[in-house]
Every structure is written in structure tokens, then in C-alpha cells.
Design a protein around this nucleic acid. Structure first.
Lengths: 176, 176
DNA sequence: AGCTTCATGTAAGTCGTTACATGATTAC
DNA sequence: GTAATCATGTAACGACTTACATGAAGCT
């Protein structure tokens, strides 16, 4: 099966967040806030918007606009598609956690807790996996001296997971 | 200018680490250790190896091999190319830190300290940037409640940078 | 005999990039 | 008036993925 595309869902999420956006505004968004987590160039965005219109996910704003920009609104179908995508379980490899959170505005959304819990699962299993790799690959000092850079980044990866897990747990606590 | 390729340098680094590798072995590597940081499928690897031969970076092992595998050795030129690549300053966006460390076997390599210091610079500036974004975008409680998911992941990103910086600093200390 | 793994390769398709293009508006 | 930014689009190209293909070796 082909890999699931994410760009259309991001555009959907952005338009949904702002109720109304032009292609140019969307491309500017990637230079600012959401740019910390994802990027897309305008040559991707414009054709994608056309596809989304023909799929009925968005529609051009009918109101006569003074400006030169074309604004798009999310349709009823589009809102459903977006919610479906947000509800899909997180997978280990795509790392869509931050991206999906970006589209959740309300602290009380049940999705919020769900996503944090899923991500906690993923990081925990990754953490365990990395720790067992380290035990296996670096059982003694000699093996470390043998591949010092490798041992460093394995340590780093473990520390990163540990930190992420802690953050997720404390975030969960604050959601109570 | 086109984006700098990394695959050939990874293959070079892998062959250099093991002195001798077949395409199949390389593709297996991506399922194990280096797989934590990078992936490549065999349909990329085999043509890439051919290109590297014609560029004179590697050469097939001349020794008559009992096995069906074709083994490759790194050439003198290849070693230089690899060292050059490792010495190139890290850029903010590619995030080649872990990957490059993987190819540094010796704790005393001057490159080690250099890479950690460079990465520290990058993370520090990223950290400052994220903190100023948070001040700007989330000045009060109301703005947080307005985009709760976004505020969460911004906090997460800041915490991640903080953790990475701490790790890099303590790693530097241990290198003394 | 049939299935899995080893081992190498090519072909087709997708996603994303940079470059090419154009016209309107705003700033100096 | 001319340079930058706004605004939208297409074209060419590169990297990577999945699928297609083939043959040998080993296991059950």
C-alpha cells in the first residue's frame, strides 16, 4: 500500500483553525508557527488545494473578495476527514504527534489525552528497545572504546526517549 | 543548488567501519544499528554502489570470493571524501549529528569534540528562538487556552532542546 | 517438493525540491 | 520608477518507495 500523505490533512487543519485561508497565507504559515514541525513549498500547496476542492474537502470562498487572494473554507466533509485523521492511531515511524496536537485547540478535547497516551506507549517501547540494544552491543568498556561515536549517540537516543517520556507523563498529570 | 546527498557518504562510512561490505550486508545494517538513525532500501543501495565505483570511491574486492556476494572496499580517494564530509560544518536543518558520530570510532578524534560543539551551538540558538516564540505567541493564559495543543508542543520543543543541550554539555565535559 | 532467506538488480510511481514564469501591489 | 513583496501557477528534476524479476542456497 502507498504511504499515507499528510500534506492535505495539514492544509485541512490550518484552514479549520483559521476558518478561512488563502494559499499564500498557508505557505506563510510554514515560515512561522507550524514551520517548527513541518514544511511545504507553495508549488506543493497550490496543486494540493485544487485536488482538495475536487475531493470536496474545501471550497473557495464565494464572497466577492476585494483582495487578489483566493480564500478557502473547509466543508462539512472536510471536517469529518480531518477528525478521522486526527483519530487515527499514531504510528511509530511517522511521528505525527506534534503535528496533530497543533490542530487541537481545546484543552478538554478527549483526543488530547488519547494522543499523549499513545505517544507515551510508543516512546516507552522505543526506550526499552534502545536500552536492550545498548546492553547487547556495548556490554563492556572495550566495545565502547571500539565504536565510541556509536555508543555516544545510542546514549543520546536513550536519554532523549527518557526525557520525552517524563514530559509526556507530567503533561498527562496536568490534564487531570 | 541541489540538496547535498547523504546516502553515498553513509555507504562510504559503513564500508570504512567494517573495511569490507557487500550490498546485502549494507542493506541489513539499516535493519539494525544504523537503522535507528537512517534507512535505505536495497533498490537504492545497489545502483548507488555502482555510481561510487565509477567515481572511484570504492572498488569491488578482487579476491576470488567463495560466496555469491560482491564485497566492496573503500579506496584512498574514498577515505578522503568521507573525512571531508565528516568535517563539513553541521547545518541546522539536515540534522546529521548522530549519523556523523556513528562513523567516528575513536574517542580521541578531534572531530568528535568539534561536532558536539557545533551541535551545541545549533541547539542553543534553536532553544533561544523557541523561547522567544513562546513569549510572543503565548503571552498570557488566554492565548494558551486558545491554542492548547500548539502551546503544548511548543513547550515540548523547548524542553527537548534544553535536554539536548544538557546532554551535549555533559558529553563535552567527559571528553576532557 | 515447497518455503524462506540470501543476493542482486530494474521499473514505475510518488513526493518534494528548485527553477521558471507572470502579473499586481506596495515601499522607497 | 524600480525593487521588494504579494499571489498564483507550471515544469524539470531528484530521491526514495513499492513492485516486479530472477536465481541460488538452505531448511522442513
Amino acid at each position: 500500500m502507498p504511504k499515507k500523505r499528510v500534506l492535505p490533512y495539514i492544509l485541512l487543519g490550518l484552514i479549520n483553525n483559521q476558518t478561512k485561508m488563502s494559499g499564500y497565507q498557508i505557505s506563510q504559515e510554514f515560515n512561522h508557527e507550524i514551520g517548527e514541525f513541518w514544511h511545504a513549498s507553495h508549488s506543493q500547496i497550490y496543486p494540493e488545494l485544487q485536488r482538495m476542492i475536487s475531493d470536496g474537502w474545501i471550497e473557495p470562498d464565494a464572497e466577492v473578495s476585494d483582495s487578489k487572494s483566493i480564500f478557502y473554507l473547509i466543508t462539512f466533509d472536510g471536517k469529518n476527514i480531518l477528525q478521522e485523521w486526527l483519530s487515527e492511531p499514531l504510528s511509530e515511524k511517522d511521528d505525527l504527534f506534534s503535528l496533530k496536537l497543533y490542530f487541537i485547540k481545546n484543552q478538554d478535547s478527549p483526543l488530547l489525552r488519547e494522543l499523549v497516551e499513545q505517544q507515551l506507549q510508543i516512546n516507552s517501547s522505543h526506550y526499552e528497545h534502545l536500552r536492550s540494544r545498548r546492553e547487547l552491543v556495548f556490554p563492556d568498556e572495550a566495545s565502547i572504546q571500539n565504536s565510541y561515536g556509536h555508543s555516544l549517540i545510542l546514549n543520546r537516543a536513550i536519554e532523549r526517549e527518557r526525557n520525552h517520556i517524563n514530559w509526556l507523563k507530567s503533561t498527562l498529570d496536568n490534564l487531570e
